[in-house]
């Protein structure tokens, strides 16, 4: 199980995000137990792992919404946990984030949602705001839905609008939190295509947090596998399929049993049936 970051994705001096010795706990529960991770510029980097392994927490740590217990998180050379509020907000203007739920503001239209960050952070004339918003919506194929309310959108459309909003300020990096979860095959295909194409066309750096192995591996340049607070494996997607790690093999192939046991730890079944006597 590699504990250090390979040279393939590191080039530490170039890395957009550089994480070293990250520890984070929720109460008594250890989420990250000293992980190292580099996100190279211009690439789609996937962070995969089972549910509850802290993938979304990692995005929140990168975005400065949570503070680590210890360790370093550098984004574009800036130490995120040490930034004051103003500096953090300046950094966030250069990041976009697509939430799992879309997180669209429910009381304004699709157009207004995408215009929201532009209006909050610039004094552009209304005609220019309109052009920018329509360009972003055209990029995700939803220019025609500009006047709809978020409640009128399907789950996939809501995520595409969230993606248009995430790129509204032309960020250097976009964070995707479980973009494929609960999507039908067409919506999933659209999102897979958009993430890859927008990354390449806009020169972005993308971090995709997901447990949808096939879709994520199809567009990722580099993959980190997380489990039990550690980086279990990392490398190019095609290389991971040949990994010697049993855990990686079980996760990537979706095997029901293996290092992660099918059965939750329990007393001996026979003993439990015959002599347990516990009320269920």
């Amino acid at each position: 199980m590699p504990e250090t970051v390979s040279t393939e994705n590191s080039h530490s001096a170039d890395a957009v995000v550089r994480i070293r010795g990250l520890h984070f706990s929720h109460g008594d529960r250890v989420i990250f137990d000293g992980i190292d991770l580099d996100i190279a510029p211009g690439r789609v980097t996937a962070i995969m792992g089972p549910s509850g392994t802290g993938k979304t927490t990692l995005l929140k740590l990168i975005g400065g919404q949570l503070r680590p217990s210890s360790g370093s998180i550098r984004v574009h050379g800036e130490e995120v946990p040490a930034l004051n509020r103003a500096a953090l907000y300046q950094l966030r203007k250069r990041m976009g984030m697509m939430f799992q739920s879309g997180a669209l503001l429910t009381d304004i239209t699709v157009f207004e949602n995408v215009a929201y960050p532009i209006r909050e952070h610039s004094r552009l004339p209304e005609a220019l705001v309109r052009d920018l918003v329509l360009m972003k919506l055209q990029a995700v194929g939803l220019r025609g839905a500009a006047d709809l309310m978020p409640s009128e959108l399907s789950g996939g459309m809501a995520r595409r609008v969230a993606l248009a909003r995430a790129i509204a300020l032309d960020p250097m990096m976009v964070l995707y939190d479980e973009p494929f979860t609960g999507q039908d095959p067409i919506s999933m295909g659209i999102l897979v295509k958009l993430i890859r194409e927008l990354n390449d066309a806009l020169g972005l750096t993308s971090i995709v947090v997901s447990h949808d192995v096939q879709e994520t591996a199809a567009i990722a340049d580099y993959v980190y596998l997380l489990s039990h607070g550690k980086v279990v494996d990392h490398g190019r997607p095609e290389a991971l399929w040949d990994s010697s790690s049993d855990w990686s093999q079980q996760f990537l192939e979706g095997r029901p049993d293996g290092p992660v046991a099918f059965h939750y730890p329990a007393p001996n079944f026979r003993e439990d049936l015959l002599h347990g006597g516990r009320a269920r």
Partner: peptide, 18 residues
């Protein structure tokens, strides 16, 4: 609950202010 406040924070918009 629907992450709208988190979304604002990530857009560098202070939800307490806004």
């Amino acid at each position: 609950a629907t992450e709208q406040l988190s979304g604002m924070e990530m857009m560098a918009v202070d939800p307490v202010q806004r």
